[in-house]
Design a protein around this nucleic acid. Structure first.
Length: 562
RNA sequence: CGGGCUGUAGCGCAGCUUGGUAGCGCGUUUGACUGGGGGUCAAAAGGUCGCAGGUUCAAAUCCUGUCAGCCCGACCA
């Protein structure tokens, strides 16, 4: 069924299934031409051609995990670094994060929070203060034990720099900052008049993960962590929900990524929290991505860090705290929500560049006029306000062949490409291509029309992306009441060999759950499915639990997860 | 951390079974021709074969260790 050339031993063994190797997937093979006995050029007859050539291979359908990595690379978002599990975020990816930061930071300030910065290093004893918290993070901590390097002999007997100057107390590179911030809060809070204390930190954190994936799970990542202290439980709970709403608002209205807000089960709670809430999004492989969390910490950390205040009655009380965060994982979510087999597609409201102008200069004698028209259009567009900034325009005058240049921007996912060539000048027109339409689809319009309509166009793309993502989620969400159907829903059709990637299957199952942690653990062992969240919105719907048959009051979101 | 696999030019790979001068495609550079679509032709540059040991007259190839990456688990944002 596949190519004539037998794949080599290595190719067969390679983690990606052999058939992907043999498929005409590799870009470099795509244009291979062969001469038939009559001398006519023809496509390589031994290689089946895909119906549509895609910029990214393999496609999502063929091998989702590999597709994801190829998109990250093709869109020039990030790459692996010499440091295990750590990534280099490249400009296009970092600009996305900067745009997320800018919008979120505004939202945090609008809800009364102020930024501050706390140490990267956390004394071991701090982390030990909250029992559940230590246990939750102990396995993945990077620990600093020395503060100096000295010329000496390394363990392997070679000369080199060896650590010296052992610290009295090891320092943990922050996996999260509850304890170190708690120490400050304890000093800052004396009276009920000091509350609420609403602080946010933009920082990097380190969690020594076993298995890493660019943006989705790396040893070091960038995030924002809000930490607040309140006088009453009600107020702290309100804060927790308020920030969850902020995240949901951001995800849907800026990232065009629909999310479900919900509470975590005990098994999925943040270590040390009383209640954890999250926003859960469905990726294109139908797995759930926890895209943001908001924790009601009760008085657990206040007790551990001694955050105490005198209330109106002169009684000394522990404060009620919250914490909440989103990370560069959002970039991963963005990719897996919107990218297609031609690469990334960035939602206009967060796009580093909204409009790419490509001058088409086939003849030197018309080049100057074309370039001038491009710059003029760019200048006009840059004066237009859009999504809290101005329309970002890049005139790409790099000396590259047209096709290459165009495909680079397709893969990066710039929302609009505008081509201006001599023929357009003659007709007083520009050619506009949308990233959410076919790569060959072009619309001619006057520069004036583009300037007048660019905001509406960008918004149409933004809304279209959200609608598409919502439709995908709805198409793969099922209300399930029968255990057999539930099992079938989460079981792949094909019998996969042990080490091959799993086919795309499942989705969100909305089923009743009686909240028994043992049943949940068993489900995870059995099917790899977990309760993603207990949705906040939605009515009670009593009936038998899908796992145990015991009476349950609510439906929850069951899914496989990242 | 367990199981499987892979590290050879910027990227993708062949060569390894049977040890004997380092190969291919794309990309890059130069020149010409092209010119609204991942061009054409010609020439050129580019590699401590992941790293460290070992076996051998000789190692990309065999052995041991180690590091890194990927897939499947476990764990996790």
């Amino acid at each position: 069924m596949w190519p004539v050339d037998p794949p080599s031993r290595k190719a067969v063994a390679r983690c990606a299934s052999a058939w992907i190797e043999c498929w005409s997937g590799r870009r470099d093979d795509r244009r291979a031409t062969f001469v038939d006995p009559n001398g006519a050029r023809m496509s390589n007859p031994t290689k089946p051609q895909p119906a549509v050539q895609t910029a990214i291979t393999p496609t999502r359908e063929q091998h989702y995990a590999e597709w994801y990595q190829q998109v990250v690379r093709a869109a020039d978002l990030a790459e692996n670094s010499p440091v295990r599990g750590c990534m280099v975020i490249k400009p296009w990816g970092y600009q996305l994060w900067e745009n997320m930061q800018r919008v979120l930071d505004r939202m945090f300030k609008d809800t009364g929070h102020k930024n501050a910065y706390f140490p990267l290093f956390i004394p071991l004893s701090f982390l030990e203060k909250e029992a559940e918290h230590v246990e939750g993070f102990a396995k993945e901590c990077a620990v600093v034990t020395h503060h100096r390097l000295q010329a000496g002999t390394k363990p392997d007997g070679r000369p080199g720099l060896v650590p010296s100057g052992e610290l009295d107390e090891p320092l943990v590179v922050r996996p999260t900052s509850e304890t170190i911030i708690g120490a400050s809060f304890a000093k800052w809070v004396q009276s009920y008049r000091d509350l609420p204390l609403l602080i946010n930190q933009w920082a990097n954190v380190v969690r020594w993960e076993m298995r890493t994936r660019l943006f989705l799970r790396t040893a070091e990542f960038l995030w924002q962590e809000g930490h607040t202290a309140h006088a009453t439980e009600a107020e702290a709970r309100e804060e927790t929900m308020k920030m969850l709403d902020v995240y949901a608002d951001f995800a849907e209205n800026w990232m065009a990524m629909p999310v479900i807000k919900g509470r975590k089960t005990d098994g999925e709670r943040f270590p040390g929290a009383v209640d954890t809430f999250s926003i859960e999004a469905m990726m294109q492989d139908r797995k759930a991505l926890q895209a943001g969390t908001s924790h009601f910490l009760g008085q657990n950390f206040a007790k551990a860090s001694e955050i105490k205040f005198l209330d109106q009655n002169g009684t000394l009380q522990h404060a009620w705290t919250t914490s909440w965060g989103v990370s560069t994982r959002l970039v991963g979510g963005l990719i897996m929500t919107h990218a297609d087999d031609d690469g990334l597609m960035v939602p206009p409201r967060l796009a580093p560049t909204h409009v790419v102008i490509l001058p088409i200069t086939p003849k030197p004698e018309t080049a100057a006029a074309v370039n001038e028209a491009c710059e003029k259009l760019a200048k006009r567009l840059r004066e237009i306000a859009y999504a809290g900034r101005t329309v970002e325009v890049e005139v790409d005058r790099r000396d590259l062949r047209g096709g290459d240049k165009m495909w680079q921007w397709v893969k990066k996912g710039a929302p609009l490409r505008v081509e201006i060539g001599p023929r357009d000048l003659e007709q007083n027109a520009v050619s506009v291509c949308r990233r959410d339409r076919g790569t060959k689809e072009r619309t001619a319009m006057s520069a004036d029309a583009l300037v007048a309509g660019v905001v509406a166009l960008l918004e149409e793309i933004q809304q279209g992306m959200l609608a598409k993502a919502k439709a995908h989620r709805e198409a793969n969400t099922r209300v399930i009441d029968e255990p057999a159907e539930f099992r079938a829903f989460f079981t792949p059709n094909k019998q996969e060999s042990e080490n091959s990637p799993t086919e795309i299957h499942g989705g969100f199952a909305m089923s009743r759950f009686a909240m028994d942690a043992k049943d949940e653990a068993k489900l995870k062992d059995d099917l790899g499915v977990t309760v993603r969240c207990i949705p906040i919105e939605g009515p009670d719907d009593p009936g038998p639990c899908i796992l145990s048959g015991k009476p349950a009051t609510r439906r929850v979101v069951f899914a496989k997860a990242y």
